[in-house]
């Protein structure tokens, strides 16, 4: 029953969640008011459990303890990712998108909400296999500086990477995934050659704007954490960040169905949620 007691302490209502959203916004300028509430409530509850805080203590920490708000913001974002998640998606990028990208002398890609970088390196490997990497540049951005540090290092647990190999094989690659990393002890380090044309940087989809023009933007499993209004704002940002006929890739359960300007995009692959800017 011990676990049960902890849960009672860490329980907050949706009303109390609004108070926390206000504190974070007014005191620190972080606007999470566009995040979906049920998921945000889970994340906040988790932070309370991890730090053994009740609502008052959480608020007091947010107000008085320097650095806590940064930690709080890092912890409320979901950072679960993997290499070649949804192999069918990567296969579709290869067959439906790469032939277009190959016509550009320089290819700029943006992985928005890249977390610890697995998706960025997956793209790098996919481009390398198609002989496109040398003229490509991938920007990986996230709101969370801590995960970006890990992304820059490009060191992952060997056990995990072996799991990713199974995903990779399903994309029908030329090489084995092990060609692209060096294994040492329990760690797999992504080859330096794959880091050469990659830049990781902080960027908030909520408050930051256009910073470059891209041929391809991927933002997978990020929009599900945003309400429809914020989703529209972020999709506008992507629209303005894409070149004409540029590609937008969303997650397996994300689409443009609630986007007011969906007509400005053409569906390239419905099942894999790959779109092309036409308007």
């Amino acid at each position: 029953m011990a676990e049960l007691t902890d849960k009672i302490v860490a329980m907050i209502s949706f009303e109390e969640l609004e108070e926390i959203i206000d504190v974070v916004k007014n005191l620190h300028g972080y606007d999470v008011s566009g995040y979906t509430r049920a998921s945000l409530k889970r994340r906040v509850t988790r932070i309370m459990e991890l730090n053994k805080l009740n609502l008052q203590e959480l608020k007091s920490n947010l107000i008085n303890q320097p650095g806590f708000s940064t930690y709080f913001l890092q912890e409320i974002t979901v950072n679960v990712t993997e290499m070649f998640r949804d192999p069918e998606f990567y296969k579709a990028v290869k067959t439906d998108v790469f032939p277009y990208l190959a016509t550009y002398p320089h290819i700029k890609l943006w992985s928005a909400g890249c977390s610890t970088g697995e998706e960025v390196y997956s793209l790098a490997i996919l481009l390398e296999e198609a002989n496109l990497y040398q003229r490509a540049f991938i920007y990986g951005t996230d709101i969370n500086g801590k995960v970006l540090e890990k992304a820059k290092r490009g060191i992952y647990s060997l056990a995990k990477v072996k799991e990713y190999s199974e995903n990779f094989i399903k994309t029908e690659p030329k090489n084995s995934l092990s060609e692209y990393y060096t294994a040492m002890y329990n760690a797999a380090t992504i080859n330096n050659s794959l880091k050469k044309n990659v830049l990781f940087s902080m960027h908030s989809l909520v408050s930051d704007g256009v910073f470059n023009e891209f041929q391809l933007i991927t933002c997978r499993n990020v929009l599900i954490y945003f309400d429809t209004e914020l989703q529209n704002k972020v999709l506008d940002l992507f629209y303005h960040s894409l070149c004409h006929l540029g590609f937008l890739c969303l997650g397996a359960k994300e689409s443009l169905i609630n986007y007011k300007d969906a007509a400005k995009f053409k569906i390239v692959n419905k099942k894999q949620n790959i779109y092309q800017k036409i308007g």
């Binding site: 949706f14 979906t36 509430r37 049920a38 998921s39 889970r42 994340r43 979901v78 679960v80 499993n221 599900i224 954490y225 997650g251 359960k253």
Partner: peptide, 12 residues
């Protein structure tokens, strides 16, 4: 389930 009686998904 969200307070406005809609679904949301989470891959945490």
């Amino acid at each position: 389930v969200e307070p406005d009686y809609s679904f949301s998904l989470d891959i945490s």
